[in-house]
Amino acid sequence: MKVVDRWFEDYDIGESRATVGRTITEADIVLHAGQTGDFFPHHLDAEWMATQPAGQRIAHGTLIVSVAVGMTAGDINPQAMSYGYDKIRFVKPVFIGDTITVRADITEKSDHKRTPATHGYVHELVTVTNQRAETVLVLTHLYLVNKREVAA
Score class of each variant (00 low, 15 high):
8 F>C: 05
12 D>V: 15
12 D>Y: 14
16 S>N: 14
20 V>D: 03
21 G>A: 04
21 G>M: 06
22 R>Q: 02
24 I>Y: 04
25 T>P: 00
27 A>V: 10
29 I>N: 04
30 V>Y: 09
30 V>L: 11
32 H>L: 08
34 G>L: 09
35 Q>F: 09
36 T>L: 03
36 T>I: 07
39 F>K: 12
40 F>V: 06
40 F>K: 13
41 P>N: 06
43 H>F: 14
45 D>E: 13
47 E>T: 15
48 W>Q: 12
48 W>P: 00
51 T>Q: 14
51 T>H: 14
53 P>N: 12
54 A>L: 12
54 A>S: 13
54 A>I: 12
56 Q>R: 15
57 R>Q: 08
62 T>H: 14
63 L>H: 11
66 S>F: 07
67 V>C: 10
67 V>R: 08
69 V>M: 11
69 V>Y: 06
72 T>Q: 08
74 G>L: 04
75 D>R: 10
76 I>E: 14
76 I>T: 12
77 N>S: 13
80 A>E: 04
81 M>C: 10
88 I>Y: 00
88 I>L: 05
91 V>S: 07
92 K>D: 01
92 K>A: 05
94 V>S: 07
95 F>D: 01
98 D>I: 05
99 T>A: 03
101 T>S: 03
101 T>W: 06
103 R>P: 00
108 E>M: 11
110 S>T: 12
110 S>G: 11
111 D>F: 15
112 H>I: 01
112 H>L: 06
112 H>D: 09
114 R>C: 03
115 T>V: 12
117 A>H: 10
119 H>Q: 11
120 G>E: 01
121 Y>T: 03
127 T>H: 06
127 T>M: 14
127 T>S: 11
128 V>G: 05
128 V>L: 01
128 V>R: 02
131 Q>A: 08
133 A>F: 14
133 A>H: 14
133 A>T: 10
134 E>W: 04
134 E>G: 01
135 T>H: 07
136 V>S: 02
138 V>S: 00
138 V>Q: 04
140 T>D: 03
140 T>H: 07
141 H>R: 02
